[in-house]
């Protein structure tokens, strides 16, 4: 009798903890930054939702620089769901290493954004979903999606605009992680013959605002995913030849010669 009751209690607890689900062994998607991966225990968890806050439309690129390498790691095709037409650029994504064959863009009505996302995340098919919309999902909506991803093992990423002044990101969050990634000044490289220094490798300031069962953190990340110079130096400089200088405007040697003649 007692063992029966204990077994029933155990079963209840297991159901509450949702350990009986087929995808309970959580996999992780490494971010490619060792400090972040160490902090999160291997990377972002699959079978959960991750929230990326974009503080300014111009900062979208920083979140993408963080997100695209993660998507590359994921299993299953990537579905980019948005309620406006996504301004993704095929050439740029190809250069970032996203395989266009496995990227499907979906444009929906604003009202149907989350239901389409749920359909993708719930389905038996493997998929990664990026949900880019202006709508701020409520806790209830996110929990509903959470149940869907827990059941299927798919992973969802919210990519939503949240200006720093209006939404500091401190509100309660049902997603596994919440990020605010903004760009950080890089160390520009000066090359001879160029008027302006070239941008160095990309630097991100990634704030992990919330993480389930962990501490928030903040990192300055260097994205060194590509070689410092994408091609040989002569080719690089040949394409950026400085404009022919008008006569009398300071080529150094000539100025020095003039000075010498003057003395």
């Amino acid at each position: 009798m007692t063992t029966d009751a204990v077994a029933r209690l155990r079963e209840q607890v297991r159901r509450l903890e949702r350990r009986s689900l087929p995808h309970s062994h959580t996999d992780t998607l490494p971010t490619g930054h060792s400090a972040v991966d160490d902090h999160l225990g291997g990377g972002l968890k699959t079978g959960s939702l991750h929230d990326f806050l974009i503080s300014d439309p111009l900062e979208t690129g920083a979140s993408l620089a963080m997100l695209l390498p993660i998507l590359k790691e994921g299993r299953g095709p990537v579905f980019w769901i948005s309620d406006t037409s996504a301004e993704l650029n095929a050439c740029g994504l190809h250069q970032s290493g996203v395989s266009l064959e496995y990227l499907v863009c979906i444009e929906t009505d604003p009202a149907n954004l989350l239901s389409v996302a749920e359909d993708i995340l719930r389905g038996p098919e493997r998929a990664l979903a990026v949900i880019a919309g202006r709508h701020v999902p409520t806790l209830k909506e996110i929990r509903r999606l959470n149940l869907a991803v827990e059941a299927s093992g798919n992973t969802g990423f919210f990519l939503r605009s949240a200006p720093l002044a209006q939404a500091p990101g401190k509100d309660p969050c049902a997603c596994a992680t919440r990020w605010r990634v903004v760009s950080h000044p890089s160390s520009p490289k000066t090359l001879p013959g160029l008027a302006m220094p070239r941008p160095g490798s990309r630097r991100l300031s990634a704030a992990l605002l919330r993480v389930r069962g962990g501490r928030p953190a903040h990192w300055i990340l260097d994205c060194t995913d590509h070689a410092p110079l994408s091609r040989s130096l002569d080719a690089l400089l040949a394409h950026r030849a400085p404009p022919a200088l008008p006569p009398g405007r300071l080529p150094d040697r000539q100025a020095a010669r003039c000075a010498r003649a003057g003395t």
């Binding site: 095709p77 095929a90 499907v104 863009c105 979906i106 444009e107 389905g123 098919e125 493997r126």
Partner: peptide, 24 residues
């Protein structure tokens, strides 16, 4: 793993509220 699931694409194409499903 990565092949596009035809069943899911069908569901999306036939779903009310979806404006377009495309690849780049």
């Amino acid at each position: 793993e990565r092949a596009l699931p035809a069943t899911l694409i069908d569901r999306l194409l036939n779903r009310p509220g979806v404006v377009s499903v495309h690849q780049l």
